[in-house]
Amino acid sequence: MAEEQVVFERPKTLTTKPTHYCPGCAHGIVHRLVAESIDELGKDGDAVGVAPVGCSVLAYDYFSCDMIEAAHGRAPSVATAVKRVHPENLVFSYQGDGDLASIGMAETVHAATRGENITVIFYNNAIYGMTGGQMAPTTLPNQVTQTSPYGRNTKEAGYPVRICELLATLDGVAYAERVTIDKPSSVRKAKKAIKKAFEYQMEGRGYTIVEIVGTCPTNWGMTPKDAIGWLEENMLPYYPLGVYRDCVEEGFETAAEAALARAKDVPIVTGGVA
């Protein structure tokens, strides 16, 4: 008899609780990638997650590490304080587009520019899911939602926000990458990015964010398969994948070092460092 071998199992950092996510939703995949990364880094006992308001509001039931449920958009502020109190812990927030890029934009930008040593997992599916499919800050021009029933009119509603591009300009950011989950190779890349972000955090390099371009078949009104197709056709050209910031690739140990180099001609910034 062949010896039994475990080739696939539930990560330690996920609980056994079945998720409430709709069929075809990619939150489940992303949860798993986060949990696997924490497991592999051996940080399951030191991880503290901050859940948002939105579809992943119940993430605190799905991750088996300590969890905090934050007010809408405030996860970066909550995570900031949690990390300041216990700098040795691995602290992450898990946020959607409405939470992160609309009501929580100030918290997002300022946590990033302070260089808070936290990791933000950002699921961008261009729509408010939990409330039933309203226009999000990342909803594409002409995309139909419940509150843009004739398509997002940029004259009225303005333009979507490209978060990785925006945050990459900030000195506190050590790592910003946009990934997706449309096929197995993309999922593997997404996992690498999440794990790298966690590693950077534990190495004290600065603020890290991984944006996952995902789907919302239910509120997009598509089958999961069609939703993937729509994502590849529309989302990915608008939100190009790739690394937007990596201080190590740029030749610096930390975001702080890179910031100092950028300001090397400013006496008040460089004074006393020499």
Partner: peptide
């Protein structure tokens, strides 16, 4: 200790929420 000037009152109170959850006197 930590003094942190937040970007807003809203952020500051949510930092208090986080620090309290993490067990600190804040």
């Amino acid at each position: 200790g930590t003094f942190l000037q937040a970007e807003s009152e809203i952020s500051a109170i949510n930092m208090l929420y986080g620090a309290a959850a993490a067990g600190a006197r804040a």
